[in-house]
Write a protein that binds this DNA or RNA. Structure first.
Lengths: 210, 210
DNA sequence: CAAAAATGAACGAACGCTCGGTCAATGGAA
DNA sequence: TTCCATTGACCGAGCGTTCGTTCATTTTTG
């Protein structure tokens, strides 16, 4: 698993403490960012929320944007962790995929505010940190890509290889869509209805040639 | 067409002037917002960019957020205008739909930075103005919904009525995806390749039952 | 000239970040 | 054991700056 948060230097020597306090900072910050967005949250508020003084907080980061990076990293960790713990000891590749999709949609529902946050605030990161975050976003696509390739290799799926990556992107986006278009979709479907319809559409896409 | 921008009061009496100057403001602001985002753009920069003094600009708006609302409104106008001018004097409903989809994807490509801007900054609007913007976003979905319903009524499409709205959302999102995941998709496909693949997938979704 | 529009200096609040300093814990010398 | 020098985490008042916004004044218009 990726662990690039050491990119950010700290004034504090004790590494265990750095880990601990940064966790505090992230957990406080993520609440505030979800509630009022990155730019409308002040450093003082973050410090208060995570129980540190403003001075202490700055011993563990270099800038406010570092906090945003830590938050994005944290969200992707949550997401990738949940994704990789998707249970997949089913029989057929087809069953495995459709079950994975349903579980993925469930995760998107649980992490709805986090997904929206990533979508809206990644662009506020400095170039270099933004690249790191987008790279982790690609890991999600890769997860489904691998699953599709496996199904193609054992003959279960019929998608042409040239469409695998796009199909993976489609899966990822249709899941995230439940988060970032929730304001409209909630009026029409429950998560279960949404999942059922989208999964069956995706299965057609995957089984019916591409 | 919707024309709710009169929601924002102005100090200036001459309505023609209000229209004109607000157009100036929007065109300057949209450039800056795309380049550096709403929060990192200052009111002074907007005023300079659109050729007004800061004082004059404030005669035509009440707050910086008003500018964001005007910008969102402007982008949706552009978008809806282009959408409704999609040529549709084809023969079959099927041909009409696939051609419309291709033209829609083309529009998403042209307006790529605008689409991303709307996605990322709508949340910075005050509640009331946000609702107005989201309502206009739904108009886009409605456009495709109507087209689908028409195809169902004349027997060309087989989607169940309960899936029409979702399919419309899927169309809209797969188009917007070309904008907000361009950083990844550009590495794999040209617009033409992307269009061809997504349109054929959507046509399967629409013709093959749902 | 009266009314409307344009101006930009000025304002006060709030921002991100710093830095001189406190203090409990540690450990070597006496 | 006592003493004191050293360390490193913690603190928050305050710095310099910048922000969105206002309004007394000037300029333009009809």
């Amino acid at each position: 698993m990726t662990k690039k948060q050491e990119v950010i230097p700290s004034m504090i020597k004790n590494q265990r403490l750095v880990q601990e306090r940064r966790q505090q900072i992230v957990e406080g910050a993520v609440r505030l960012f979800i509630e009022k967005g990155f730019h409308k949250t002040t450093t003082r508020e973050i410090a208060r929320e995570c129980g540190l003084s403003i001075g202490t907080m700055y011993e563990y980061i270099q800038s406010k944007e570092d906090v945003l990076y830590l938050v994005c990293h944290y969200i992707h960790s949550l997401l990738l962790e949940k994704l990789h713990s998707i249970s997949s000891h089913h029989l057929t590749a087809k069953e495995m995929l459709s079950s994975s999709l349903a579980q993925y949609f469930q995760i998107m529902d649980e992490l709805r505010p986090y997904v929206v946050l990533i979508y809206q605030e990644t662009k506020s990161l400095p170039r270099e940190q933004m690249k790191l975050v987008l790279a982790r976003e690609e890991e999600i696509t890769l997860f489904f890509e691998k699953m599709l390739v496996q199904g193609i290799e054992d003959g279960s799926f019929q998608i042409p290889v040239s469409s695998v990556r796009l199909t993976a992107h489609n899966i990822v986006v249709l899941g995230q869509m439940w988060a970032f278009r929730y304001w409209a979709l909630r009026k029409m479907y429950t998560l279960e209805e949404y999942t059922e319809k989208q999964v069956s559409l995706l299965m057609i896409e995957i089984l019916n040639k591409g």
